[in-house]
């Protein structure tokens, strides 16, 4: 009987000891780490966004941001706009720049050389297909990203039934309303929002990183392609079009570090869908998170 009692007590102690672990999901690092996000290109004013890598991503408004031309050492100070955004002058293709940010008592820096120019032509190839042609006269390896942006209507289509305004989300929904309510009147706004969204585009071209790695083939908003030669590069792609939008084809020749960052960033986005958060993302700003990217950009309005 004594043995039984000892055994029972021993068993209960073991079970209780090991069973008392807690499920405590990981809190991420909440120290004040600076995040620098910037793309400079030859078409737009240089812009930098500063924020902190902590809950809510608070923006940084009191930083000193300047850019130095590596060619003539000319320094330009950026002007704070709002929500952590700082603006500067338009950079020039082929020139090198150093971004310096003084914030939270320290200086962080990054350098990029603006990629060389290229020419772009694009034609639609059916209701949702596009064919583009890039021409490069500069030697060396070039890193291109291709994306299709859409400006949506400011106000989506809506129907008015018995003076009640009802928004409809799609053409199909609109048709369904019309078939049910013959008296419904259709209204459509023709002004577009300034905000752009990236549409999903895909390609079967084996030269693209999307097909090579087969990770961003069908879900991605960008096509990534490296091209080592001068001359023409043609590429066909399919677009997942949102209806009633204004479309803009954006092709960027970017620096290798920026190319790598954008690819990994898109990969992070796709894998989040599957609940997987294990994609490494490396920036190029010494002492801070984020990226200082440089691009030569071409934008073409597209009508399908």
């Amino acid at each position: 009987m004594k043995n039984r009692t000892i055994f029972a007590v021993f068993s209960v102690l073991i079970v209780v000891n090991f069973a008392c672990s807690k499920n405590n999901p990981l809190a991420t690092d909440q120290t004040e780490k600076l995040v620098v996000l910037s793309e400079i290109n030859q078409l737009d004013s240089a812009s930098v966004n500063l924020s902190q890598a902590k809950a809510g991503f608070p923006f940084v408004a009191d930083a000193e941001v300047k850019i130095t031309s590596l060619a003539d050492r000319k320094v330009e100070n950026f002007v704070y706009q709002n929500r952590g955004n700082y603006k500067g002058q338009q950079p020039k293709a082929g020139f090198g720049y150093r971004l310096s940010v003084f914030s939270m008592g320290k200086i962080v820096e990054a350098e990029q050389i603006m990629p060389q120019s290229f020419t772009l032509d694009a034609v639609t190839d059916g209701p949702s297909a596009l064919k583009i042609e890039l021409e490069q006269v500069h030697a060396g390896e070039h890193f291109y990203t291709i994306e299709l942006l859409a400006n949506h209507y400011n106000v989506q289509r809506f129907v008015r039934v018995n003076n009640e305004v009802i928004e409809v989300a799609s053409e199909e929904e609109l048709k369904a309303w019309l078939s049910k309510h013959g008296s419904a009147k259709v209204f459509r706004d023709t002004t577009f929002s300034d905000k752009q969204s990236r549409l999903i585009i895909s390609t079967d071209d084996v030269r693209t990183e999307n097909v090579k790695y087969n990770e961003l083939k069908d879900l991605s908003g960008r096509i990534f392609i490296k091209h080592s030669n001068t001359g023409k590069l043609t590429l066909a792609m399919k677009c997942n079009l949102a209806d009633s939008s204004k479309f803009t084809l954006v092709v960027k020749s970017v620096t290798p570090a920026y190319f790598k960052y954008l690819y990994a960033s898109d990969l992070q986005f796709v894998n989040k869908v599957f609940g997987v958060l294990n994609i490494p993302l490396e920036g190029n700003v010494n002492g801070a998170l984020g990226i200082f990217g440089a691009a030569y950009v071409k934008r073409i309005p597209i009508k399908f």
Partner: peptide
């Protein structure tokens, strides 16, 4: 699991982000 969460680049580029689109560092 990510060690640090931070803002995605899209907002800086003027691209409408999907809800809670973020980047992370391992």
């Amino acid at each position: 699991l990510p060690a640090i969460l931070y803002k995605n680049l899209d907002e800086t580029l003027g691209i409408e982000s999907l809800e809670d689109n973020y980047s992370y560092r391992l």
